[in-house]
Simulated scan of single mutants.
Amino acid sequence: MNADADEAARGRANVLYSRAESYFNLDRNDAAIADLTEAITLVPGMARAWRMRGECHRLNDRYDAALSDFDEALKLEPDSAFSIGSRGQVYAALDRPEEALADFEHALTLAPGEHWILDSRAGLLADLGRWDESLTDLTKLIELDGESARSWSRRGDLYYRMDLYTEALDDFTQALRVEPGSVRALTGRGDTLRMLDRDEEALADLTSAVQLAPDNASALASRGATLADLERFEEAMADLDRAVEAAPGYAWAYQVRGGVLQTLDRHEEAVADFTRALDLEP
């Protein structure tokens, strides 16, 4: 390829990459992949194109293709925290936790305060039952940016999983201070209040969450559980029906609905719901 042709190829590849960025931001990942593939064909050494195509594949759950692209990007840019951290996310999705943790730790040596990498490592550590380490990462995220509702909610979720409901309540309240309309925080705080037997307060938060996001299965199921605790079974069933319609794979919603059906002596239906819950989470 002569110099003019090489320059033309690079120019076209740059425009393709720019268009792919816009496609990516529009969640049109397949269109982005098509442009990035052409850009890579024109300029095989364009690391950023390999990197972005890997991320598109990851978001589309094409994990083998994503791994291949991140590996190629890292051949060109071995110290890219983004590529290493993103590859860690792929390993986590493939249930390869040791490789995922190795990548997260490497990426964090290159970019110690990178929020999304800390967040990803915290999530994986929690899934592995390494809750104290996860808590350390989530606390660091809050120290880095105490005005992130997501970080407060993430730590609140972990406290909830640890049965530390008072701490969870404090964190969800902080998240709502930052973002009063956060459906996630309203749902989390509502469910935490339910666990503390503060059902009327729980109902208020969960109703606010449902009003903001009428098809949010988590908010609907939690409100259904709260209504059941209050022995308002007809309303509970209505919410739980909506929850499983919105998210047919939501095992906990079937479990709660099964409990309500059992209370109502509708045992055949209860058995069906409990069976569905067990099938979804054996």
Rank of each mutant, 00 (worst) to 15 (best):
Y63H: 14
R242I: 03
A251F: 06
E55C: 08
E55F: 12
T226Q: 04
R184H: 08
A228V: 12
A202Y: 13
L110V: 03
N60R: 15
R223T: 08
E201P: 07
E114D: 14
R161F: 01
R257A: 06
S151Y: 15
Q211W: 07
M52A: 10
F274G: 04
D137N: 15
R130N: 10
A236N: 12
W131Q: 14
K140Q: 12
G88A: 04
L141W: 14
A65H: 08
R87W: 11
A13Q: 04
G259H: 11
A168V: 10
N29I: 05
G224P: 07
D273Q: 01
Y23W: 15
L206E: 12
L36T: 09
N29Q: 08
Y91K: 02
L186A: 05
S222F: 05
N14P: 00
D199Q: 08
I142L: 04
A272T: 04
W252T: 09
L138F: 13
T109G: 00
V90Q: 06
L169A: 09
V271D: 05
L124F: 05
Y17V: 13
A93R: 15
A185S: 02
I142F: 07
E105G: 01
E281D: 13
L264K: 05
L67I: 12
G190W: 04
Y160I: 01
L76K: 15
R232C: 08
D157C: 09
H57W: 10
A213Y: 10
A32D: 07
K140V: 03
M162P: 00
W50G: 13
G258D: 03
D205M: 05
A213N: 09
L158K: 02
M195Y: 10
E55M: 11
R189T: 00
G123T: 07
S222R: 06
L16S: 08
E105M: 00
M52R: 15
N2M: 07
A175S: 05
L67W: 11
F274L: 09
E245L: 14
D199L: 09
E72F: 13
L59D: 02
Y250D: 14
L193V: 03
S222T: 01
A238D: 08
E269M: 01
E105H: 02
A81S: 15
R257T: 04
G88S: 06
S68E: 11
A213R: 09
R257C: 06
P97R: 00
V183S: 02
I33W: 11
P214M: 11
H267F: 02
T226G: 03
E201C: 05
T263S: 06
L26K: 00
E167V: 05
